[in-house]
């Protein structure tokens, strides 16, 4: 389990329910590493403003994280964290490596209402 204040994805079943039951979901899949921590912090800071988006983290080394690691949009990704944006159960955007608050907001504003 990652030591963040975000909600955690805890299993593959949990992951499926989260993206099915929430119209707009952002998941950051990483470790407690230097490129990942800033993204978790950014998400924590945006939770209040983007109340229609469900923000979650996922442990990259958990066995069920294959849903992100092996996702077609992860092809070519070689930098943590893998950050995904799901709308109506489908991935609409994904990024690899550290992102700035501006970049995260651009993605949220582009895909979510």
């Amino acid at each position: 389990m990652l030591q963040t204040n975000l909600k955690h994805v805890t299993s593959e079943e949990d992951f499926n329910q989260i993206i099915e039951n929430n119209e707009q979901v952002m998941i950051c899949c990483g470790r407690m590493g230097p490129m990942c921590l800033p993204v978790y912090d950014i998400m924590e800071g945006l939770e209040e403003k983007y109340e229609n988006v469900a923000f979650y983290d996922m442990e990259f080394d958990a066995h069920f994280a294959h849903v992100i690691r092996n996702h077609p949009m992860s092809a070519g990704f070689m930098g943590l964290p893998f950050t995904y944006y799901f709308k109506n159960g489908k991935a609409v955007e994904a990024s690899s490596s550290i992102q700035s608050k501006k970049q995260v907001k651009e993605m949220l504003d582009k895909h979510f209402s």
């Binding site: 470790r31 590493g33 230097p34 490129m35 070689m78 930098g79 943590l80 690899s96 490596s97």
Partner: peptide, 17 residues
């Protein structure tokens, strides 16, 4: 290629290589 081949953190991304 940032995040897909170019990295600035060995401890973060080393195992991808």
């Amino acid at each position: 290629f940032k995040g897909s081949g170019v990295s600035y953190c060995a401890t973060c991304d080393g195992d991808f290589f």
